[in-house]
Amino acid sequence: MAVDPRRAHLADPRRTALATPTPPPPPATRPPSSTSPTNGVVNGSVSPQKDDSPDYRLRFCTVCASNQNRSMEAHLRLAAASYPCISFGTGSLVRLPGPSLTQPNVYQFNTTSYQSMYDELSAKDPKLYQQNGLLTMLERNLGVKWGPERWQDWSIGAPRLDNVAKGDQGAQGSEAGLVDVVITCEERCWDTLVDNLIERGGGLNRPVHVFNVDIKDNHEEALVGGKAILDLANSLNDAAKQERNLNGQPRGDFDEKVPNILAEWQERWPQLPALWSLCWF
């Protein structure tokens, strides 16, 4: 196919993504506009499943810098697959692109809702933020949970019944405020998070597998990364379920299999470099 060399760079997929960002499609299962009544239905459908031991579910936590794009995409994916899931950001502030590189939109963690960000940005410049995909992203996020949360401010093990009541996706099953697996989306976040766990001192005596899946911070990659994270979660959960189904047999070691699982996963997703460690809550 003959392409004008001067226009060749436009053919670059990333360029195309920049010029016309592909907003993440709203999940098929739930439109972003859906509110608590729908959640009630979801909760109702999940609750009986949890009591069923064959449907044992690992609890997940997804983490990125601002708890907006990558962690939220993965959060949505995992929650949609009925995994208990919560999500956080490790940055000091929530940062969203603004009209220029030097004018980002900055928000506080924990106290600003996705809805208020959505309202603010659509009041500021709806065209711009629609075009760069922010509004679509926020629309997705506000359907998942109330607002971005900061990892460092999370009190591990504190009950999260409020989140269940608010209808956060993935809240069901994670109401005890504990998770089995944490997945970060950038090595920087992984470093921050592991350091933070060492800092906390592991007072809960609970092991937690902390993974990193390096995902570039754009809408397209977030979609791919979300898929990959769900794949990883499924693999891990399968292994955990297998262990529980052994019913007391001496050989059934989920934790030991984790490196294997990750290695297999890495071969399936070679473009997303992964990292893992066993940490303590």
């Binding site: 940062r95 030097t102 900055v106 754009n218």
Partner: peptide, 17 residues
């Protein structure tokens, strides 16, 4: 990698707030 605005602004240090 040329990413969209999210990446570079996120790394910018802003003490304004």
């Amino acid at each position: 990698e040329p990413t969209d605005g999210l990446d570079s602004t996120k790394r910018r240090r802003l003490g304004a707030e």
